[in-house]
Simulated assay, not measured.
Amino acid sequence: DDDAAAGLLLALREPVREVFASDSFAARPYADAPTVRALFEDFLAHPRRHDPERFWRLLNLELWLRDAVDADAAPAGPATAVDEAPTAPAPAKPDHEPNPGKELDLVSAEDGRRYRRFPVQTGLVDRDTDLQAYLRGEIEDFFRDLPADAMPQDAPWHFSVSEKIVAITQGRSYYTWEVRPSVAARVLSRLVTRTPAGIGLGDPTTMQLAIQEAGLPRIVLSAAAGAAGKVAGKRGVFYNVVGGNVRAIDGPTTYSTFPANVSAKLPPAEPDRVAAEVSAMIRAADIPAWAKASFAGTVVMDANDIGRNALGKDTAASAAVLEAAFADNPLGQGRERTPLAVVVRMD
């Protein structure tokens, strides 16, 4: 049974790791080796989240191929160039430096002010992560390591939290194999235009989440309105009809690091409440007094290369101003691992 299969995998973790880390496994076309390794590590930490038979099938196939096909090949060694894989995390960077290809400062098209966006790099979170404790550690580390001239002490700043990590810690993110798409989800997902910025509802798993979130009648009505809008040359009609929560549903993307490359997620629940709780935590955190005095609040932000949406906030700044400060998507959406930002109004 699954318990026995999982128990044996746990007992054999080291030899299984060696197989999944081998050159021969990395060279096979049937699986993405970095993702398999990441999933196996997640299985070791959280066995009940995964189907152990998946790992047994991959393991047995690899061992059979070695015996039946690679009999004359040299013994497999450790995989090389793991960090070059598309799903490998980006190298570590200081929090006061921009992401590669991005700028720290941006003059907002909304209010004409200059904003400095510090992208905060983090580790992975999961549904067992205590969001408040996790964010407190990150914000305290940020101000502890901040260079003296990086931001004016009297400049108002706000904290931006990616909606993705909020949703993950709320248990609203799922591995794709945890979602069972209906026939309706499979059909409707084919009607969605995919963009390089994200898969949106163009995957059966994300469409199924949308149906669960909004209901099938509303999704069908919105799809019909969207089709009519396309004929009339109007874009975004589907999302305008279906509502903002569905807009924030997102799915697996090959350019993202694990687990985003194998996950589908709902928008976070009660983002305004989350923003208020984060702000209260920051005001109680171990950060300099001047930082507390100039702190202006928190926003839960959904941003990518084609759009921004402030899902929840407790700051006096308008959603339009908050979104405009992220016009160039400074946190990225691939391997950067920067779901947080300290955003400073510089003038």
Rank of each mutant, 00 (worst) to 15 (best):
R117T: 15
R117G: 00
F118R: 00
F118N: 00
F118M: 01
P119I: 01
P119L: 01
P119N: 00
P119W: 01
V120T: 00
V120R: 02
V120A: 03
G123S: 12
L124K: 15
L124H: 13
L124W: 14
V125F: 05
V125R: 08
V125K: 03
V125P: 01
V125W: 02
D126G: 15
D126Y: 13
D126C: 15
R127Y: 08
R127D: 12
D128H: 15
T129H: 07
T129G: 07
T129V: 06
T129W: 04
T129I: 06
D130N: 10
D130L: 12
D130I: 12
D130T: 07
L131S: 08
L131M: 12
Q132M: 15
Y134A: 07
Y134C: 13
L135R: 05
L135E: 02
R136F: 10
R136G: 14
G137Y: 09
E138S: 14
E138W: 11
I139Q: 04
I139M: 08
I139R: 02
I139V: 15
I139D: 04
E140S: 10
E140N: 08
E140Y: 10
E140K: 10
E140G: 09
E140R: 14
E140I: 08
D141T: 09
D141V: 00
D141L: 07
D141K: 07
F142N: 05
R144Y: 02
D145P: 08
D145S: 13
L146P: 14
L146I: 09
P147F: 05
A148K: 09
D149V: 00
A150W: 03
A150G: 07
M151F: 00
M151T: 10
P152N: 09
P152V: 12
Q153N: 10
A155K: 06
P156H: 05
P156T: 06
H158F: 13
H158L: 13
F159K: 13
F159P: 14
F159V: 14
S160L: 11
S160Q: 07
S160W: 08
S160Y: 09
V161N: 05
V161R: 05
V161K: 04
S162V: 03
S162D: 03
S162R: 00
S162T: 07
S162C: 11
S162Y: 06
S162Q: 01
E163S: 15
E163W: 03
K164A: 04
K164D: 02
K164V: 04
K164L: 08
K164M: 04
K164I: 03
K164P: 00
V166K: 07
A167F: 03
I168C: 02
I168M: 10
I168A: 09
T169E: 05
T169Q: 09
T169K: 13
Q170M: 12
Q170I: 04
Q170T: 07
G171H: 09
R172I: 09
S173M: 14
S173Y: 02
Y174V: 07
Y174P: 12
Y175E: 05
Y175M: 05
T176S: 09
T176D: 11
W177T: 13
W177E: 13
W177N: 13
E178M: 13
E178Q: 15
V179C: 12
V179Y: 12
R180D: 12
R180C: 01
S182N: 06
S182D: 05
S182K: 06
V183M: 14
V183L: 15
V183D: 13
A184I: 06
A185K: 03
A185C: 05
R186F: 08
V187C: 10
V187S: 10
V187Q: 12
V187K: 12
